[in-house]
């Protein structure tokens, strides 16, 4: 199956849930979906045996600054599926105020590590994910601080304490 056929097939599979689609590069297809459509869309790809789940990317979109059109801060979650050279990305946006997304682990069990990373780096809750223990951040990392959000610019150096540096040995 060549790349364009694979992408056409994926577009047909995902068509029922697609809010918008884009082809940023010849070998890629981006499909924007509602978060409620995530599980059915992922199921459809898996059922059709379209490629494999390759990676999960979080993208922080902070709220607009002064003088810009008002936009609420949100995290965009990208689910990348690869089939040979073709890459399909499901794009789901969740607002800061309700940063929740369904876990896809019931469909793809190996997604657990990626979801744990998303939870601690971006503060997006993955509803139903089997394990929410810390994966990457140190045990003494403060709750509610999400390092890959743009608003995080490092800790203020506290007195006598090395910031940004785990002391739990």
């Amino acid at each position: 199956m060549d790349t364009s056929t694979a992408l056409e097939k994926a577009a047909a599979i995902l068509q029922p849930w697609a809010l918008a689609t884009a082809t940023p590069e010849p070998n890629r297809l981006d499909v924007v979906i509602e978060r409620g459509s995530l599980i059915p869309a992922v199921k459809a790809l898996v059922k059709a045996r379209w490629g494999f789940f390759s990676a999960l990317t979080g993208l922080d979109q902070p709220p607009s600054g002064d003088g810009e059109p008002v936009r609420e801060g949100c995290v965009e979650v990208l689910y990348h599926f690869c089939s040979a050279a073709a890459v399909v990305t499901l794009r789901v946006s969740v607002p800061y105020s309700d940063a929740k997304i369904d876990s896809i682990c019931e469909v793809i069990p190996s997604a657990t590590l990626y979801e744990r990373e998303l939870i601690e780096m971006f503060g997006v809750e993955c509803t139903g994910t089997p394990n929410t223990e810390r994966l990457l951040l140190s045990d003494d990392w403060p709750e509610g601080v999400y390092p890959l959000r743009k608003s995080f610019t490092g800790f203020q150096q506290a007195e006598g304490q090395e910031a940004n540096h785990g002391s739990a040995a």
Binding site: L113, N131, E133, R134, L135, L136, L137, S138, P147
Partner: peptide, 10 residues
Amino acid sequence: TVRLGYVHRG
């Protein structure tokens, strides 16, 4: 189970 991040460098 697995726990990573001991060499997480940001």
